Computed example of a mutant assay.
Amino acid sequence: MKTSPLRRAAVGALALGAVVALASCSSSAATPAGTADSAPPAAGPRVAISYDGGILVLDGETLETLADFESEPFTRLNPAGDGRHVMVTMSEGFQVLDTAAGSPDEPELTDDVFAADAPGHVVRHGDKTILYADGTSDTTIFETADLGGSDGLPETRTVEGVDAHHGVSVLLEDGTFLTTVGNADGRSGIVVTDSDGTEIASSDQCPGVHGEGTAASEAVVFGCEDGALLYTDGQITKLTAPDQPYGRMGNAWVSETSPIVVGDYKNDPDAEGYLLSAVTLIDTAAKTYEVVDLPEGVEYTFRDVVRGPDDLAYILASDGSIHVLDPETGAVTESFPVVEAWESPAEWQDPHPSIVVSGDTAYVTEPAANSVHAVDLTTGEVLATTELDVTPNELAPAAG
C-alpha cells in the first residue's frame, strides 16, 4: 500500500468550518478492471462492496468490476447521500469513496477523511449528512452537495458529545438536533435541542437506545430494549413493546413519504444467533406500536430489510427469497426466490446475505457463492448476476 496524506476534518464545538489537519496513514490506489487504454466507464449507477481487506466498485447495471481498492480488514459502507460518494469507516475516521456514479470518471478511494474516534453511524436527511463518532460522541455535519469538491473536504459543523457511547444523531430541516444519551455503562435515551442549542425535550426512558429513522413529516423514531421513542412536533412519546421487560427494536427502515416505520424485533435476550422472525410496525401519525410475526421460515438479520417501490418493505430471508411486506397491513404479499437458503452468521460482522436498494433495483449479496445479484423489485426478475473472486460482505449503492 502506498503512503499518502489524509485530510481530516477538525473537531470544533458548534463551529462552522473545518480545519484540515495532515496525518500520515495508509491509503491505496485502485486496480482498474481494464487496461490503461480502456475508455472511461460510462455514466451510470454503481454499487460498492466490502470484503476482507478491500472494497470493490461495480457497475450498477452490468455488475462488472470497475475498481478494487485495498482497505482495512473489516470496513462498513454508508451512502453519503449525494448519489455518488460512500463513507467508509476506517480507523482514522470516515474515508470518502468516490464511486464515480453518474460521471465519466474512474472510481477512487480518496485521501479525504473526516477524522473520528471510532466512527459509527451515518445519517442522511434533507440536504445534510451527519457523522457520529462513538469514541467521543461528537457529531459532524456538512452540506451533502459540498462533498467531492475540488478543495477537498467540505466545511463542517461539529456538535461536541458529552459522554462517549455507541450512538447516533439526527438533524431536522429547521435545525432541530436529536442525539442519543449514554456512557460507557449503557445508553438511556435522547435529548433534543433547537437551532440555537437550547434543550427543548429529553427522555431517559429508552434503555439500550439504538437505531433511528426519520419518516414522513420528519417524525423521528429511536429503538429501545422495551419499545421505542417517537419525536414529533416538539414532543417525545414513549411507545411500549408488548413484551416486557425485553422487547427490543434496534434498527428502523423508513421512507420519508410514509408515516409507517418498519423495525426489527427481538423478545429473547438470550436467543442464539442473529436471525429474527418478527417486525415492528410504528405508525408515527397514530403513535401506535405493533409487532407482526412473519410467516414460517421467514427470518432475517439487520442487513436484510429495505424500503423500496411504493414504500413497501422488502425482506431478504434465510429461505433465500425476497418477501414483500405491506407496512400498512403487516401482510407479506409476494415472494421472489433469489439466493440459496442460508443460516445465521456466528458473529454480526461475518459475511451473510444482505440487501440494499437504489430506485426499483435491489442489490443482493450471496457470500456462500461469492456472488452479487441485481433484482427488479417491481417484478422479482434477476437482472444481472456476477461471481466475484472475493467474498462480499457489506454493500452500498450509488444511484448517480
Rank of each mutant, 00 (worst) to 15 (best):
V291K: 02
T280Y: 09
T280P: 10
S255C: 08
L294Q: 03
E256A: 07
G247H: 01
T288K: 10
A285S: 14
N251K: 15
D268A: 14
Y274F: 15
D293H: 02
P269M: 11
L276G: 05
D243F: 06
N251F: 13
P295Q: 03
P295A: 02
K287D: 14
E290P: 06
V261N: 12
Y314D: 01
Q244K: 11
P259V: 08
T257I: 09
A252N: 13
A286S: 14
V291C: 04
G320I: 14
G250V: 06
R303Q: 07
A317H: 03
W253E: 10
G250M: 08
P327Q: 03
I282A: 09
P242Y: 05
D293N: 05
D268L: 12
A278T: 09
M249L: 14
Y246W: 01
I322R: 00
A271P: 15
V292Y: 02
A286T: 11
G273R: 12
Y265Q: 08
T257K: 07
T301W: 08
P259T: 11
V261K: 08
D310A: 14
S321I: 01
A313W: 01
E272M: 11
D293E: 09
Y274E: 14
E296I: 05
T288L: 08
A285R: 15
L276F: 13
E256D: 11
P309D: 03
T257E: 09
A286D: 14
A252P: 06
S318E: 07
G273V: 12
D304C: 15
E272T: 11
V262E: 03
R303C: 01
E299R: 11
E328G: 13
E296D: 12
D326A: 03
I260N: 01
Y246T: 00
S255G: 09
L312Q: 03
V292F: 03
V261G: 07
L275V: 13
V261F: 13
V324M: 07
E299W: 05
V261C: 13
P245Q: 10
